[in-house]
């Protein structure tokens, strides 16, 4: 088992939602634990038999830990962003009408009170004004798609 395979395994376990995975293959035993905090993902990697050659052990121990922290990085980054959520259920529109320009685009600076989108519900057209100022980092919903109450719509960088 090489480093790449171990990295993939860690990623797979992190995504799977399992809290702990133990794996034994021949002379290798791997335990991957994921805590509620993704950064706490710990890895134990040790050969079963000490007498067997263990060329990977010194490398494997620190590296997977570093890798395990990687998926956590985007989470930490987004925490400084503000999520704008849908105040109502309906259909999300990014334009006032199909032939008009978009209300906002990624990278655009918005001010409090700027219209971000329209959410149509039962033929009522509801314009959603921004409560915050900042820069649009991400638009989380496709144009003309249905949205639920409280569904995240935009990520805004307030800095």
């Amino acid at each position: 088992m090489d480093i790449k395979e171990i990295q993939n395994l860690i990623k797979f376990v992190a995504k799977s939602g399992a809290s702990e995975v133990k794996l034994e293959m021949g002379d290798i035993k791997i335990t991957i634990k994921t805590g509620p905090d993704p950064e706490a993902t710990a890895i134990q990697y040790a050969p079963v038999a000490a007498q067997l050659p263990q060329p990977m052990a010194p490398v494997a121990e620190p590296r997977p830990v570093a890798e395990a922290a990687a998926p956590a990085a985007p989470v930490a980054e987004t925490s400084k962003y503000i999520t704008i959520k849908s105040p109502i259920i309906g259909t999300f529109y990014r334009k006032p009408s199909p032939d008009k320009p978009l209300f906002v685009e990624v990278g655009q600076t918005i001010a409090e009170g700027d219209v971000l989108c329209i959410i149509e519900a039962m033929k009522l057209f509801n314009e959603i004004e921004s409560e915050v100022s900042g820069k649009i980092v991400k638009i989380l919903v496709d144009d003309s798609s249905p949205v639920e109450f409280d569904q995240p719509l935009f990520l805004v960088d307030p800095s």
Partner: peptide
């Protein structure tokens, strides 16, 4: 439903309502 006004089965009136939500309130 939801808001066309008819006489018998013919449409007389169409309604287009646009709301503005500020601070998540209508």
């Amino acid at each position: 439903w939801p808001n066309d006004i008819l006489s018998e089965n013919k449409k007389l009136c169409g309604i287009l309502i646009e709301n503005v939500l500020k601070q998540n309130k209508f």
